[in-house]
Amino acid sequence: MFEARLTSAATLKKVLEAVKELLNEASFDCSDSGIQLQAMDNSHVSLVSLTLRSDGFDKYRCDRSLTMGMNLASMSKILKCANNDDTVTIKAQDDADTVTFVFESKKQEKISDYEMKLMNLDQEHLGIPETDFSCVIRMPSVEFARIVRDLAQFGETVLICCTKEGVKFSVSGDVGSANVKLAQTNNFDKEEESVSIEMQEPVSLSFACQYLISFTKATPLSPRVQLSMSSNVPLVVEYEIAELGYIRYYLAPKIED
């Protein structure tokens, strides 16, 4: 028996919004410790890694580890039927071929359940090596989303250059070029608005704007985002999900011909 309950369906809706642009379907691995999802997009350029810890749920029970392959478009249709403040419970029997979502309104006057067929997804698990990153940038997630959206209008590739002074995002295309420089702030009063950089050595890497835009769909999950970069390894874009876990996106760089 598997059962996981969250008092606010809004969180699950935001999690799904954060993954469904990159993935059509995904396996949710459920165990004692929580729910994990790891999948690459179809083109194998980006990878989504989601962890929802069992202690972050209002109720969590997982008698036997199980993998639930879900079509994310179908899951999205179901979650649209929940109000943001509904309690959501995800249920499955051991070895089941369906999963059930139960939505309960705050006053319990409305209870709905939606059963969805599970899929057999033959997804391989990837070992992600631990990396000591040359640069780790922390900034407001809204600011990152804004920069990516603004710059993507002018080109397909963004060059991210990080030094100890700050981080520069640059794009060039048919129209011309655009640069956004963010200096490191020492804004201790408003930590949420600060830009901080931990740098071992400067890094310059190019990435496809289209993927970064997809990653920023996670913005509603967290006020902060962390970008980790080292030369010639994938970028890691991480959003913490308060008291529940995190979503990390890995993006392979673009390399000059």
């Binding site: 690459m40 083109s43 194998h44 350029v45 980006s46 990878l47 391989e124 698990h125 990837l126 070992g127 992600i128 090596p129 590739t157 190019s206 496809a208 390894v233 994938p234 890995y250 392979a252 760089p253 673009k254 390399i255 000059e256 011909d257």
Partner: peptide, 14 residues
């Protein structure tokens, strides 16, 4: 122009 690299080379299948 820059070429998009795939992730496969960076991670190993476990």
């Amino acid at each position: 122009t820059a070429t998009q690299v795939r992730l496969d080379g960076f991670f190993t299948v476990v």
